[in-house]
Nucleic acid binder design. Sequence first.
DNA 1: TTTATATGCAATCATTTGGTTGCGCAACAG
DNA 2: CTGTTGCGCAACCAAATGATTGCATATAAA
Lengths: 109, 109
Amino acid sequence: MKRDIFQAIADPTRRAIIVLIAAHAMTPNALADHFEVSRQAISKHIQILNECGLLDQEKAGREIHYQLKLEKMQEIDMWLEQFRKLWETRYSQLDSLLAILQEEKSHEA
Amino acid sequence: MKRDIFQAIADPTRRAIIVLIAAHAMTPNALADHFEVSRQAISKHIQILNECGLLDQEKAGREIHYQLKLEKMQEIDMWLEQFRKLWETRYSQLDSLLAILQEEKSHEA
DNA sequence: TTTATATGCAATCATTTGGTTGCGCAACAG
DNA sequence: CTGTTGCGCAACCAAATGATTGCATATAAA
């Protein structure tokens, strides 16, 4: 089973988990309190996130604290980079257009 | 069936399609040439991308040219924003740490 | 008109997914 | 020691997913 980070963020519950553990480490039980589904369902999501290398974990007694491995999220950002370039180009083209319109307007006056 | 953009980019084939139609509009057949799967499979992916509002389409005779609705990709970027803030904070903290170390070093000298 | 091409839509199928329940085990609390 | 709590793992299940084949339709070419 090969999973990647795009699979990881495909599920809404998983995205919510990611947001929750982005700031602070949390235990599976604490996470489960935030959702309607069972603890085991959350546990499965955690497992998937872990497979994707998205988690740091720290054991404290019988509790396990999971936290988001933030730098992994940058992979998504890197993939987006190619499109960001495109839409920034588009914006600068729009800027040029606006500049031209502005220019024409000043000629009218 | 409610699908969002995160579902859309979950599939590798769909991501590849997105990249292909980001720059130029393409027909389903032209797209299918780039993959091992059948034309109908690609057609289904197109359908899904369309449901997610990711596509602009233009009919030209019997051909349909699909292109990426680039601005829709910014939704992903917007979601990432919250994490970007976090990792930028982390970087600036690292910068502070480096500054402190540098400071200490200069005191040594 | 006849034929070929480009596409969409429906039915079908194997696999994956997200969920559940039940169980076992380690770590605290009594 | 005994009971309770926090977790992970396995089995199971309904629904969604990605793919295929087959068919219908519209446009272009012969």
